[in-house]
Design a protein around this nucleic acid. Sequence first.
DNA 1: ATGGCGCACGGGGTGCGA
Length: 259
Amino acid sequence: MQIATWNINSLTVRLPQVLAWLAANPVDALCLQELKLTDDKFPFDALKDAGYEAAAFGQKTYNGVAILSRGPLRDVVRNVPGSQDPQARVIAATLDTPLGALRLINGYFVNGQAPDSEKFVYKMQWLQALQDWVRSEMAAHERLVLVGDFNVAPEDRDSYDPVGLADTIHHTQEERAHFQALLALGLVDAYRLFEQPEKSYSWWDYRMLGFQKNRGLRIDHILVSKALQPAVRACDIDRAPRKNPQPSDHAPVVVTLAA
DNA sequence: ATGGCGCACGGGGTGCGA
């Protein structure tokens, strides 16, 4: 079975590309970020026709997350319980899989703009709240997958310019410490379970021929709990949609699990 | 050089992303 994550930077614009990608990559579940639409505009019918149930958590203009699944989505949670965050950044659901019940958490992590900004303060608070909640979710769910646009490049090899961009947003010690703290809860970066090409990224700036020059960051991640690690068979970034006309600036990341 | 590009809102230019 396969689970994927993709920041699509407006589902209104990218729905045809999402449907085309699903037709070519019939994953069991797809987590989307940056819907940029309200739930009344979410394309439930088009996705149903493509074979997917969906749970959406959107808002006007910004943010918004959704989980698409070939099977039922149970125990859906929108945002971190108790956080009272006005921004729609988290949705979670439980899937019934051949491996058993699997808790899937999909996040659009805060960008943070710059380390000296108010938005960075929000990012740190948001990351702490997420961490605290994921800890409790892991206690309740042996098989758990945390995916999304983390807006963190975990290591220097996850950035096209780790020296020039040192201590800038996505690269700070504080952000990387939060990523490590998530791993310390008992999660594993599925992408790094395998030998990967050098200079592997999941996002490239629209400007300055970023994709053509492979000036990117690996900021979209799939973390799996230790109970799932033996079942992970592959994890890959699909660069193909980044070559589409009018692409998202992010590429999908796909994990393949046994059974 | 902090911009460039793309999207949403709205109907012009601004905010935001990463």
